[in-house]
Design a protein around this nucleic acid. Structure first.
Lengths: 141, 141
DNA sequence: AGTCTATTCGCAACTTAGTTGCAAATAAAA
DNA sequence: TTTTATTTGCAACTAAGTTGCGAATAGACT
């Protein structure tokens, strides 16, 4: 956890109007250094001995989601995956790619997805998300 | 359950190379007459007294998914939602719309979603899904 | 129709992600 | 430093989905 990341974590807590506590800083730093959406269990594992209680992690994630600083990326295999709300606009989250060979899910931050129209048959569309499936670079060979 | 739907259910079982059993016909008919992705619990409720055992429903759904006749639409609130694989092409599933007011999810069968390119930075993309969020016609007023 | 066998079904018991209640700890305001 | 609302951790709980296994049955073969 670099000083820069610690600073980023502090800023995010301030944005979310949440008290600066050790567990929250740890959870945020763990989220920030992950390159794909992670579960509570992965966060706990990554933090090792320093990890807060499981319940605290869940509650922290929930609070960060409510504040809009973190996203529930999706629920896969009965488990929520979380990620910082980086690279998500108000109307669109970045696309997620899941490899059908190795199962790994990645965020395709740099992929442009065309926006759908904002209304359709009486439905008012606020946000869109795209999920992609296929082979990742490793498994394509 | 109309005779037409029963016939459709039989055809789907044949496609899936699965034995024609009472529980499977019931589950399929229930799926076919739903207008949105449904859970095991909703299927059981809809079938009432005639409903097969919970485990049988799960196993039937799993088998139908493996055969490609049914899709797991998504996992929401720790619960899988299933739907017939109607209106899904090989490369793209129809979009799902979830209302942020009433929580109801609907399939937008008639909505055109542009296909993304089939490769991106080494990723080979086989299938895409779109999830939409906003207000449904009822809640828009 | 009757027999046989692999498949499917239903029950009960289990697993585990996520939640709740509550007393102890603590951030930060006074 | 004191105070107080907020946050934390523990233990116990909830419920979706799974597993093992004996009983039932679809469909093939007389």
């Amino acid at each position: 956890m670099s000083p820069a990341q610690e600073q980023a974590a502090r800023t995010l807590l301030e944005t979310a109007s949440l008290r600066r506590t050790r567990p929250r800083l740890l959870v945020l730093q763990s989220l920030l250094q992950a390159s794909y959406p992670v579960t509570q269990e992965q966060i706990a594992e990554q933090l090792g001995d320093k990890s807060p209680n499981k319940v605290t992690i869940y509650r922290t994630l929930e609070a960060l989601c409510t504040a809009g600083v973190v996203h529930k990326a999706f629920l896969q295999d009965r488990t929520w995956h979380f990620e910082p709300a980086h690279n998500c606009s108000e109307h669109q989250c970045h696309p997620h790619f899941t490899c059908i060979a190795c199962g790994q899910t990645t965020c395709l931050m740099d992929m442009q997805v065309p926006a759908v129209k904002s209304t359709h048959n009486g439905y008012t569309i606020h946000r869109q998300r795209m999920q992609l499936e296929g082979l990742c670079p490793n498994c394509s060979c």
